[in-house]
């Protein structure tokens, strides 16, 4: 576990995960202040060296605010905090994050966010589509995201940012288990 005030990522780190939460109370814009915290320079260097990064929820917002991922997350269309299980459809199973899923497979991941509406301009969206960088889409688009986007990849496909929570879909006693394969895919591919 690395604290936001730290400045180095340990050598031989396989994967950096930016978890969810409400860093700095989402003041200014969600993820904006965290994007300026000391550890993020190290995360950016890790990205530039080709490191694997997973950003979930607020972690995804922080990755867009640091320009590691394109676009931005803005307030949900209905202005409400949404907390429920949502159907997610796999768009690209040819990545280290999704290799144990199949294309068009339906998953159930919980979402828990107020600012989850993904926005990107037209050119940016075409780029994401052409380069197969949309990893997941919502079936019922709960937050108004452009093109139903729930998660996107960096150009080198080594960074995934998504608003839904795969880590909260790993135990049948508390709901869905369809997040397990995301972490198993990572273990299989990275190690």
């Amino acid at each position: 576990m690395l604290w936001h005030k730290e400045v180095k990522i340990p050598e031989k780190t396989d994967l950096v995960i930016l978890p969810g939460g409400f860093s700095y109370g989402d003041y200014l814009r969600c993820g904006a202040i965290a994007a300026k915290s000391p550890i993020m320079s190290a995360v950016n260097d890790f990205y530039l060296k080709g490191g694997f990064i997973l950003g979930i929820c607020n972690g995804f917002q922080v990755l867009t605010e640091t320009n590691i991922l394109p676009g931005a997350l803005i307030t949900n269309r209905n202005q409400k905090f949404i907390c429920k299980e949502e159907e997610i459809i796999v768009q690209n199973s040819n990545t280290v994050f999704t290799s144990l899923y199949e294309n068009n497979q339906n998953l159930s991941y919980p979402i828990a966010h107020h600012d989850g509406q993904y926005f990107i301009d037209k050119n940016g969206l075409s780029e994401l589509i052409d380069e197969e960088r949309i990893a997941f889409k919502y079936k019922n688009n709960p937050n108004g995201s452009i093109d139903n986007i729930a998660g996107i990849l960096s150009q080198n496909k080594r960074v995934l940012g998504l608003m839904p929570h795969p880590e909260r879909a790993v135990d049948k006693d508390i709901g869905s288990t369809s997040g397990i394969k995301l972490f198993k895919s990572l273990l299989k591919s990275i190690r």
Partner: peptide
Amino acid sequence: MLRSEVLDPQGET
């Protein structure tokens, strides 16, 4: 201000 092409749910409300 949000760019004109970006939806502003608060303004709409």
